[in-house]
């Protein structure tokens, strides 16, 4: 019998890719508070449940999991309040890890984000894993991301009997990835802060999925940064994804944010800070530990976004 694996954020594109690659060797069970985006496409059993709901107890009772991949993190949108998001992301993560501990799950991978380092002018260009997490200082909307990262690393240090890998990933791009930056570039409208053009890192969904799968078989617990091929300026990223750059004077950010959300493109406000100051992570530790090299070139990953664009949805004619 195949060992069982729990993947959260199962409605997302990344979870699909990971589940697909793992399904020959694992029996994959996916959980997500959201309904399945395309019914019946998840390669495994799909359960709709919130991570901090009692329903999760049952899931852990029913299945003896040998691995947990926690990809589910709700991003800031207008629909979900900060309290709700904190509840889902932080309390939910703690609860999931708690259940995993009680069920003695031996392997854990938690996907965090490079956002936790915070966009700040004092950032060194290559942030190592031990760099301070400034995000909650610069933007309280990111407090839940930082707290979730803390919850995962705390668990990692506490539970030495099992392995836990926390991945702080750069912007994941892919044709179905629904994160803010991807949605924006795919929509073809990219606001930028006038006069600022920081360096960015991207990682293709295929590479990200591969990294997550490698991390599942880690020998030791650790926190790693994860990025794709090289750095590039934000304006170049916009150019490569053939989106339209909208330069916004720093004082007009709020107004433009509101305008874009009217067009069906809601951007988290903290993102504008990342359009001003670079957050570039040093991913050498992960590459060394797992002999990992990103396969997809950033140029191609971004160009692919333009191909899957359906302008009509976002641009009223």
């Amino acid at each position: 019998m195949k060992p069982k694996l729990l993947i959260t954020g199962a409605s997302g594109a990344l979870a699909h890719l990971v589940a697909q690659s793992l399904s020959p060797n694992w029996k994959v069970i996916g959980v997500d508070p959201r309904p399945e985006r395309l019914r019946g496409t998840f390669p495994g059993e799909y359960i709709q449940a919130e991570y901090n709901h009692r329903r999760m107890d049952e899931v852990f009772h029913q299945h003896q999991f040998q691995g947990l991949i926690h990809l589910g993190r709700i991003r800031e949108t207008a629909q979900v309040s900060a309290t709700e998001r904190f509840q889902l992301n932080v309390v939910g993560t703690k609860r999931l890890l708690d259940l995993a501990k009680r069920a003695s799950v031996p392997k854990h991978v938690v996907l965090s984000t490079y956002h936790v380092y915070g966009a700040h002018r004092l950032n060194a260009l290559y942030l190592k894993e031990d760099a301070p997490l400034r995000a909650s200082q610069t933007f309280k909307e990111l407090a839940d991301a930082v707290e979730m990262d803390h919850a995962a690393t705390n668990f990692m240090w506490r539970e030495r009997g099992s392995t836990t890998v926390v991945l702080r990933a750069a912007n994941v791009v892919g044709k179905n990835v629904q994160n803010a930056i991807c949605t924006m570039l795919r929509a073809g409208l990219a606001p930028r802060v006038l006069g600022f053009d920081p360096l960015f890192q991207f990682i293709d969904e295929q590479d990200a999925a591969r990294a997550i799968i490698l991390a599942l078989d880690a020998k030791e617990s650790a926190v790693y940064n994860l990025a794709g091929e090289g750095v590039l300026s934000y304006s170049k990223a916009i150019e490569l994804s053939r989106a339209l750059a909208i330069p916004v004077p720093p004082l007009g950010l709020r107004w433009v944010g509101a305008g874009l959300s009217k067009l069906g493109l809601s951007l988290p406000r903290y993102l504008f800070e990342y359009f001003k100051y670079p957050v570039v992570v040093d991913d050498s530790a992960f590459q060394k530990a797992f002999v990992f090299q990103p396969k997809v070139k950033t140029r191609e990953a971004l160009a692919a976004l333009a191909l899957g664009r359906d302008r009509a949805v976002y641009l009223p004619t």
């Binding site: 090289g230 590039l232 300026s233 070139k297 950033t298």
Partner: peptide, 12 residues
């Protein structure tokens, strides 16, 4: 240079 034409430290 990487595929986007930048070096490791953002030189273009």
């Amino acid at each position: 240079l990487n595929s986007a034409g930048f070096d490791r430290w953002g030189f273009h």
